[in-house]
Design a protein around this nucleic acid. Structure first.
Lengths: 176, 176
DNA sequence: CCTTGATCGTCAAAGGATTGACTACTTCGG
DNA sequence: CCGAAGTAGTCAATCCTTTGACGATCAAGG
């Protein structure tokens, strides 16, 4: 409590917040609180970095890149599968693909046995563009990961996956 | 590569994606890739859970809660400090506070020695509401954290903070 | 004093994303 | 074969958030 609130930056705010919450709400779990705050903060920083250094300069939104990324790796797919794998709504895919198709990166074709469905696929230009973009994206990922030793990276991934596959994750009916 | 892409769920997609990327772009670091994908996915699930179970039912957006949360813990603050600590733009704070003030949760008063600045503070009702909301919010955080042992939780927090304070984070000029 | 530059909060414009409705189509049961 | 229920993609409405511009205000140097 030595800092005046106005002087806090985000990191010292976490410590300050946990201390104050403990005093006011003793029933809270300070470790879970720190976990939630830190995880959320870090993920926000990551996406901001990716988007501002890699994707915005190419004229893509973060969502647009995710559609291209899914199509790049999981091949031609129906729209609903892209939505599921990219973690967004079907409506969002529909809107994003409108732009990506206009820019010549994605094609929309009919599916043989279901006239409702639309098959989305990368064009040659789309494949080239997303390959190039992901290379730079992964360079940024490597820059972040370099703060940890290889052993630490492995441990971190294991713990994150444990959370992702745990009961709380299963209970949360999610989109993304 | 045994799965057909259409049958993938998000988790198996990560494995599939890493394998395919290795084949196509050998220069990528698969560990950094897995770290980025898993971290992003988990954070999205967390926020979605918080927002859908705790905050939306109270009529608050995720951003609105973050403003209340900062004011709750860091006391009365000028608008720009709220923006910095909550990780959003000054314009976003301005817009969110308009609603929060209308709902009687936040007050806006003048600052003595700077007629440009506005001091934001919780009302009694705001204090009660955010205290109640955070209690439930922390219950959700505890549910997630319960997938890990206490020792694992400590290790995870340490690794996340190491990433957050590392050079890559410092280089990324961020908002949130 | 006053001018130059920076800062504060707000507004307008733009883009993104969600939900819910709607049409078209498929599937399944009787 | 037919009708009911479910599913695919799209559209409209709404909300949130960012960027950039603006008027008002403060601070510092000459």
């Amino acid at each position: 409590m030595t800092d005046r609130p106005a002087d806090l930056d985000y990191l010292s705010f976490v410590d300050y917040a946990i201390g104050k919450t403990q005093a006011e709400l003793p029933a809270t779990d300070p470790v879970a609180m720190r976990l939630g705050l830190t995880l959320h903060r870090l993920a926000g920083a990551l996406v901001y970095d990716w988007e501002s250094t890699v994707h915005r300069p190419r004229g893509w939104s973060w969502g647009g890149f995710r559609v291209l990324f899914v199509l790049w790796l999981a091949g031609p797919l129906e729209s609903r599968h892209v939505a599921r794998l990219a973690g967004m709504s079907r409506a969002a895919v529909s809107a994003l693909v409108k732009t990506l198709e206009r820019d010549g990166l994605v094609t929309r074709t009919q599916v043989p046995h279901d006239r409702r469905a639309v098959r989305l696929a990368l064009t040659g230009a789309g494949h080239t563009a997303v390959t190039d973009a992901y290379q730079e994206h992964n360079t940024r990922e490597q820059a972040w990961a370099a703060s940890l030793t290889p052993a630490e990276q492995t441990v971190l991934i294991g713990l994150l996956e444990k959370l992702t596959t745990g009961p709380a994750a299963a209970a949360a009916q999610r989109l993304a």
